[in-house]
Amino acid sequence: MKERPKHRFANLPEGGENPLNYAVTQRDRSTLAMVTDAIAHKQTLLAYQPVMRNVADDKVAFYEGLIRVLDPTGRVIPAREFMPVVEDTQLGREIDVLALRAGLMALADNPDLRLSINMSARSIGYKGWTTMLNRWLNRDATIGERLILEISEQSAMQVPELVANFMEQLQSRSICFALDNFGSGYTAIRYFKDLYFDILKLDGQFIRGISRNPDNRALVSVMLSIAENFDMITVAEQVENEEDSRLLTSMGVDCQQGFLFGSPTTRPYWTVNTQERKKMTGFLA
């Protein structure tokens, strides 16, 4: 009788029996290592994107600060390439702290700036995050009046009662809240009466190409009705062309954000000299 061969995967590393799983595992490990190294060496920064209040007049309502990390070569890495891997880890909380710190510093240095910063429900109650926020608010009360905290729909609905209590505490300090990526998850509308979001950001999957998609127009109309009933300002995300922009304005969307108005930049107008500012029309509101 022939000797049975040893299992052909016996000496493969974890996940190696499936090439796809192995590749994903190695990628995630590499991403975690990159983010860990970036945090340790303070290689993080914000990229700023305008949210337009009046599209026709190039009026900016506020800017969104988007966290970025630098890889070992100095390349700027957007959040979409690392947040899905780190968001449920301790690194995710540390990233939230660094984003908040950078945003608060920008607000302190620029009294006319209004800025939104992304956070996750995972950071509620996290000592490093709350200590950072309270320190800056106690130093300058006007920061709270100009700060918007964005929480994604998916994150908010994981612990809605905790989010509601958190919002109630901070709204007394004039901080606004935005529900990000609305429509991408399964929001329980019944929580809206308890959460008191000031801003509803409509997920980009319903906005891109809306002028050619009647189904998305119908869905966005429903979202706008919800926002109106709960007295929330609406922001359409990922607006990329004039045709979509005009339609959204006619539908009653309050603000728009997307590449049509400017891509995220790590060198916003308030960091450049006067001569350069004059060239950056649309960013001088």
Score class of each variant (00 low, 15 high):
residue 62 F to G: 02
residue 39 I to V: 14
residue 122 R to D: 14
residue 84 P to D: 07
residue 80 R to T: 14
residue 45 L to R: 12
residue 72 P to G: 00
residue 83 M to D: 06
residue 78 P to S: 06
residue 104 L to S: 01
residue 39 I to E: 08
residue 42 K to E: 15
residue 64 E to Q: 13
residue 36 T to Q: 14
residue 123 S to L: 04
residue 100 L to M: 15
residue 86 V to F: 03
residue 33 A to D: 10
residue 41 H to F: 12
residue 115 L to I: 01
residue 81 E to C: 07
residue 36 T to C: 07
residue 97 V to A: 01
residue 114 R to E: 13
residue 90 Q to W: 10
residue 21 N to Y: 14
residue 31 T to I: 15
residue 95 I to K: 00
residue 85 V to L: 10
residue 125 G to M: 09
residue 121 A to N: 06
residue 77 I to T: 03
residue 71 D to V: 07
residue 68 R to K: 12
residue 55 V to I: 15
residue 47 A to N: 10
residue 82 F to T: 00
residue 41 H to N: 14
residue 96 D to I: 06
residue 105 M to R: 14
residue 97 V to P: 00
residue 84 P to F: 03
residue 75 R to H: 12
residue 55 V to Y: 08
residue 28 D to C: 11
residue 26 Q to W: 02
residue 39 I to K: 00
residue 43 Q to H: 13
residue 95 I to P: 00
residue 47 A to D: 08
residue 77 I to Q: 04
residue 96 D to K: 05
residue 36 T to D: 14
residue 58 D to G: 08
residue 34 M to P: 01
residue 110 N to C: 10
residue 60 V to Y: 03
residue 118 N to S: 07
residue 24 V to F: 09
residue 42 K to V: 08
residue 127 K to F: 09
residue 125 G to A: 12
residue 108 A to F: 12
residue 46 L to P: 08
residue 25 T to G: 13
residue 58 D to V: 04
residue 57 D to G: 06
residue 69 V to P: 04
residue 111 P to F: 10
residue 103 G to C: 09
residue 97 V to N: 06
residue 117 I to C: 01
residue 113 L to T: 08
residue 98 L to D: 09
residue 91 L to G: 06
residue 49 Q to H: 07
residue 93 R to P: 00
residue 58 D to K: 15
residue 67 I to N: 00
residue 128 G to I: 03
residue 51 V to C: 11
residue 60 V to T: 08
residue 106 A to R: 02
residue 97 V to W: 03
residue 125 G to L: 08
residue 32 L to M: 11
residue 114 R to W: 06
residue 88 D to G: 06
residue 69 V to Y: 03
residue 22 Y to E: 12
residue 77 I to R: 03
residue 29 R to P: 01
residue 110 N to G: 12
residue 105 M to Y: 12
residue 94 E to Y: 11
residue 93 R to F: 10
residue 37 D to E: 14
residue 126 Y to S: 07
residue 25 T to D: 13
residue 63 Y to Q: 07
residue 26 Q to Y: 04
residue 120 S to P: 08
residue 70 L to G: 00
residue 112 D to P: 05
residue 41 H to T: 13
residue 121 A to D: 02
residue 121 A to F: 02
residue 99 A to I: 05
residue 65 G to A: 11
residue 65 G to I: 01
residue 87 E to V: 05
residue 62 F to W: 15
residue 112 D to H: 15
residue 72 P to D: 04
residue 90 Q to L: 14
residue 95 I to M: 12
residue 63 Y to S: 00
residue 37 D to M: 07
residue 72 P to W: 01
